[in-house]
Computed example of a mutant assay.
Amino acid sequence: MSSRKKLIAGNWKMNKTPADGVALVRDIVAAIGKQSDVEVVVCPPFTALESVGKALEGSNVKLGAQNMHHEASGAYTGEISAAMLRALFATHVILGHSERRSYFGENDEFINKKVITSLKNQLKPILCVGETLAERESGSTLKVVQRQVEGGLEGVSKEQAPTVVVAYEPVWAIGTGKVATTEQAQEVHAFIRGLLVKLFGDAVAQKVRILYGGSMKPANAPELLAQQDIDGGLIGGAALEARSFVDLVNAATAAK
């Protein structure tokens, strides 16, 4: 059985005002805020980070952001730095999400700069990787994932690597209701684990958590979370409602 603590992270995307966010996390904290068997992170939009962070005080639920810029400060209109996130007591940051890659043109080199900066600022990066439907149908899944993992982790040291979280999100299964089969998901997770062994050695690779990020819901979570190399979930739609998010945390607890 894996010694890695399961991680359930909620990516709220462009949803929830500060007031809505506070109401949501109060319900989440009331249900699972004191448990410590599973690591829980919520990632509100930038505008709700401060108010949600205050609502999480005293609980075991952690605060994450959905993105950041790699520069410390400067003329980058609309951007947020790692130091700004740390000032709000964020502990995690999602980097390289497929929506950032596809809508905003982020490439592996740019994402890698953010990964390096986040680690320097004691922020744990959740590095997202995954293939499009066209890439899967053409048989390129593993090639694409390898490029994204190796590119995203360029320059990360063996000492830093255990604080990195990798999230495999088949792009064709995000927000579509489609889910990779358990076998498809585990195959790619195991492949990523193998890449981490090559990059950092087996001992370090066994400490890195790999999340599944493609339409995980309470109904399919137990089967996915039972897989050897699936260490949790990066949750989209199901993170916007307290009951479904809590159910996912409970499923991760049961799968320990």
Rank of each mutant, 00 (worst) to 15 (best):
G194C: 03
Q148L: 05
D27A: 14
G105C: 04
A167E: 02
A180W: 01
G74P: 05
V166P: 00
E50R: 10
G201L: 14
F110E: 14
R100I: 09
G194A: 02
L224H: 13
M68W: 11
L142G: 00
G78I: 12
D27Y: 01
K217S: 06
K198T: 10
L196A: 02
H92Q: 02
G237Q: 10
A251S: 13
Y76E: 10
Q35M: 14
A252G: 06
V179G: 00
S140Y: 09
L142E: 13
G78S: 12
S244E: 12
P18T: 04
L85K: 09
A72W: 02
G213C: 13
N15Q: 10
A219W: 09
A30R: 13
S2V: 05
D231I: 11
A219I: 13
Y168P: 02
Y76S: 11
L127M: 11
E187V: 01
N11K: 03
L24R: 11
Q146W: 00
V249I: 15
L123Q: 08
A226D: 03
T132R: 11
L85S: 10
G233I: 03
S3F: 07
V149K: 09
V208L: 15
S36G: 14
Y76N: 13
D20W: 05
E106Q: 15
E131N: 09
R101Y: 12
M68V: 08
V208S: 02
L234A: 04
T117K: 14
S215N: 01
N250Y: 12
A254G: 08
E71C: 03
T141F: 03
P45H: 07
G237Y: 12
N220D: 07
I94M: 15
P45Q: 09
V246Y: 15
T176Y: 09
K124Q: 13
A203M: 08
M68Q: 07
V115G: 02
W172C: 08
S157K: 13
F245L: 08
A65R: 04
A167P: 01
Q148K: 12
S138M: 14
G151T: 01
L199W: 05
D231P: 07
A254M: 06
G105Y: 05
N11D: 03
P162E: 12
W12H: 13
T141D: 04
K178I: 13
S138D: 14
L95Q: 10
V93W: 01
E131R: 01
L133G: 00
V115N: 02
K54E: 12
L119D: 03
G177V: 08
K217N: 10
E57L: 11
F89D: 15
A226E: 05
T181R: 04
Y168H: 07
S118W: 09
V164G: 00
N220V: 03
A23S: 15
R136F: 06
Q227C: 12
I192F: 07
F104Y: 13
V93T: 08
G233L: 03
W172R: 05
I126K: 00
V156A: 05
L211T: 04
R193P: 00
Q66C: 02
P45M: 07
G151V: 06
Q186M: 09
G201M: 05
G152L: 06
A48D: 08
S51V: 12
S59I: 11
P125K: 01
T132N: 04
P45K: 09
A75G: 06
A134Y: 04
A242Q: 03
R209V: 10
A90P: 00
G130N: 03
